[in-house]
Amino acid sequence: MALIGVFDSGVGGLSILDEAMLRLPGHNYIYLADSLHAPYGEKTSAWIASRSMALCQHLAALGCDVIVVACNTATAQAIADIRSQLTDTPIIGVEPGIKPAAMQSFNGIVGVLATEATLNSDKFNALLATLPEHCRFIKQSGAGLVPLIEAGQADSAATLALLAEHLKPIQSAGADTLVLGCTHYPFLKNVIRQLLGDTITLVDTSEAVVKQLNRQIESLLRPSKQPTQDGSTTIGTVVFISSKDETTLLSMAKDLMTTDLAGHVVSAQRLGELA
């Protein structure tokens, strides 16, 4: 069994954790939410890089075999430095799925909903420059959405109204594909469907990230789902760590995730001072 660390600015990375636990249930997980400082998308690049490094170093010190930076903003601003420092630990990042979106779009018009920090990052724009010129990308900041999701209001009227404003330029451009460029945004799929219907293709990268995670684990360990002597499957542990409120984090995990946490040994704790 591997110990997998998943880090995000808040609850958004639960979308990655959920996919990982559904596909790779026989491992142990630590989910670290820096909710005290969410959202990262409104912070400076220097602050994001420094904080992300410190949190990943903390996960490495806890013994994580692999770390997933389940935050688009942190990936864009910090992952190169994190990999250069934590050379003994595989680091997996997330980035907006603009490449698969370009391949899936029929009319060549793709909306990208992401944080301002992600949209302005060198990493994102370098990736954008590699894609076919015939594909048009409508970039839109989702300012204000992350705090609503963090407050447990993903399906609220306030979220619906704000999301409608953000999606107007994408709708007006006639996009047939929408990239969810923040790990918080998959939790808005129901609201997006209310606004855009079923005709638009939604792209998030959870599945691709977990496939990469599985490849990294297989290179480190034997297959994770080891049967016990009675033929059952090993039950993994999940530790939820929050820099703000571990009880709220655990409650939101139960609400937002489709994984049945009752099938795992679950605990929650508050993040202490970082070294």
Results as ranks from 00 to 15, higher is better:
154 A>K: 01
204 D>Y: 11
160 L>G: 01
60 A>M: 06
184 H>P: 04
221 L>C: 12
245 D>G: 11
236 G>Y: 12
84 S>D: 15
256 L>F: 11
7 F>M: 10
142 G>F: 11
106 F>A: 14
117 A>G: 03
269 Q>G: 13
118 T>V: 06
75 T>H: 09
20 A>W: 09
220 L>H: 03
51 R>K: 03
50 S>L: 03
191 V>K: 03
192 I>E: 01
182 C>H: 11
123 K>Q: 05
80 A>H: 11
66 V>C: 00
31 Y>R: 05
166 H>E: 11
238 V>R: 03
2 A>G: 02
74 A>R: 09
69 V>Y: 05
271 L>K: 10
143 A>R: 06
17 L>G: 09
250 L>K: 12
253 A>Q: 04
25 P>N: 12
160 L>V: 12
166 H>K: 14
72 N>W: 10
213 L>G: 05
209 V>M: 00
227 P>Y: 01
109 I>M: 10
268 A>S: 14
262 A>C: 13
12 G>I: 00
97 G>W: 06
1 M>Q: 01
216 Q>W: 00
17 L>V: 02
257 M>L: 01
81 D>L: 14
69 V>L: 14
61 A>L: 11
83 R>W: 04
186 P>V: 00
142 G>E: 08
182 C>S: 08
48 I>M: 08
62 L>D: 04
64 C>H: 00
222 R>F: 04
107 N>H: 10
249 L>N: 06
11 V>M: 06
153 Q>R: 14
30 I>D: 02
275 A>P: 15
159 T>P: 01
260 D>E: 10
58 H>P: 05
53 M>T: 12
174 G>V: 04
112 V>E: 04
7 F>I: 07
51 R>D: 02
19 E>K: 14
119 L>R: 07
149 I>F: 04
52 S>C: 09
115 T>P: 04
6 V>E: 10
243 S>M: 07
76 A>W: 05
130 T>E: 14
191 V>C: 01
267 S>N: 13
11 V>H: 05
100 P>A: 09
121 S>M: 02
214 N>F: 02
237 T>F: 10
5 G>Y: 04
125 N>E: 10
187 F>Y: 07
128 L>A: 05
107 N>T: 06
90 P>H: 07
220 L>T: 03
176 D>W: 08
234 T>A: 11
115 T>F: 06
147 P>M: 00
217 I>H: 06
41 G>M: 07
116 E>Y: 11
204 D>A: 03
101 A>N: 08
54 A>S: 15
92 I>G: 03
2 A>I: 08
204 D>V: 00
42 E>W: 04
43 K>Q: 09
64 C>G: 06
49 A>C: 12
72 N>M: 02
32 L>N: 01
99 K>D: 06
103 M>E: 14
265 V>S: 15
249 L>M: 04
137 F>H: 08
171 Q>P: 07
10 G>R: 10
139 K>N: 05
216 Q>Y: 04
244 K>P: 00
126 A>Q: 15
223 P>R: 00
59 L>Q: 00
